[in-house]
Structures are given as C-alpha cells and as structure tokens.
Simulated scan of single mutants.
Amino acid sequence: MHRMLQRLHIHSNHEDFLQAGYVGLWLTYQHHDGERGPFPAYAFLRVRGKMVAMLRKDTNYYERHSFSSNDQEPAQVRIETESWMPDVDTLAPYLNKLSDREQRWVIEHAVHDQAPRMIAAKYNVSVETVKSWRKGALAKLKKYMK
C-alpha cells in the first residue's frame, strides 16, 4: 500500500488513501475469480483504481470550490452571485416566440431559479409536464438562436 502511495506521488492524507486501498483490497477479495487471472495482479489494479478515484475526487473538489478568508459575509457573496440572473425585460424578445406554458417555464427557471418539481407544485401539474414545457422551449429557442 505504501509503495502505491509513492507511485501515485501522494504526499498528504496518507491515512485516507490507505483506507481507500484497503477497501480496494477487500473488494478484490470479495469479487476475485481465479479463472480470470491471478489474485495479485487483480489486487494491484483494484487498489490502484480506488486510490486514483479518490485522487480525482479530491482534485475535482478543490478545483470547483474556492476557499477564501472570512472577510465577506455569506449574504454578500450570495447577492453577488445572483446578480447575473436575467430579469423578465431581458428575456422579453425571446419570450414572444414561446407558448404561454413555455414562457412560464423560462420565467420560473431563469428568473426565479426554480426546479421542475417546484414549478410543477406552483402550477399544479406533474413534473413530466414541466419537463415537456422545458423541452419545447429549448427547442424553439435553439431554432431562434440559429
């Protein structure tokens, strides 16, 4: 296990990666089929795979999440991120190409940032109906944009 940490150039969180390796070894033991190949080769691949998967997961997490000091209040950050959302006036030229239901979906989704289940509850329709509104609106908007 420690040799695998060196091979993968893992320099921190050794205990977490060792645990992932042990899980990989345990899964190897559970799923090994002697007819398909020797145990050591399969164990090597399985342990390495678990560690690489954990490495990718950590890398993606740190790439997607920015960490900053506590200088800003969370409410201020939220206001800044919501400032890019369009309003109804911005969408007006596009809305006249859509049916009333498709317009509802665009406004609720783009302006009010509502999920399909929330829109469905508001208009007392099924989630699948809202998804059909979305499908129609996106198809018309794509055609309009070309």
Rank of each mutant, 00 (worst) to 15 (best):
M1R: 07
M1E: 04
H2S: 02
H2P: 00
R3E: 10
M4K: 13
Q6R: 14
R7A: 13
H9E: 14
N13W: 01
E15W: 03
D16F: 02
A20N: 02
Y22T: 04
G24F: 03
W26Q: 11
W26I: 05
L27W: 12
Y29Q: 15
H31M: 08
H32P: 00
H32C: 04
G34T: 06
G34W: 02
F39D: 06
Y42F: 15
A43E: 07
A43Q: 06
R46Y: 00
V47Y: 02
V47I: 15
M51L: 09
A53T: 09
A53V: 00
A53D: 14
M54G: 06
L55H: 00
K57T: 00
D58W: 08
D58Y: 14
N60L: 13
Y62L: 11
Y62F: 15
H65C: 07
S66C: 12
S69C: 07
Q72W: 12
Q72L: 15
Q72K: 13
E73I: 08
A75S: 12
A75E: 15
Q76K: 13
V77I: 15
V77W: 08
R78T: 10
T81L: 14
E82C: 09
S83E: 11
S83H: 10
S83L: 11
W84P: 00
W84S: 15
D87T: 14
T90E: 14
L91Y: 05
L91W: 06
P93S: 05
Y94E: 09
Y94N: 09
L95S: 05
L95C: 07
N96V: 12
S99P: 05
E102G: 03
R104K: 01
V106N: 04
I107C: 04
H109W: 03
V111G: 06
Q114W: 07
A115G: 00
A115T: 10
P116C: 03
M118C: 01
I119C: 05
I119S: 02
A120C: 04
A120W: 02
A120N: 01
K122H: 05
Y123D: 06
V125I: 11
S126M: 04
S126Q: 08
V127K: 15
E128Y: 02
E128L: 05
T129C: 07
V130N: 06
K131W: 10
K131T: 03
K131S: 08
K131I: 04
K135P: 00
A137Y: 07
L138K: 05
L138W: 02
K140L: 09
L141H: 06
K143I: 08
K146H: 08
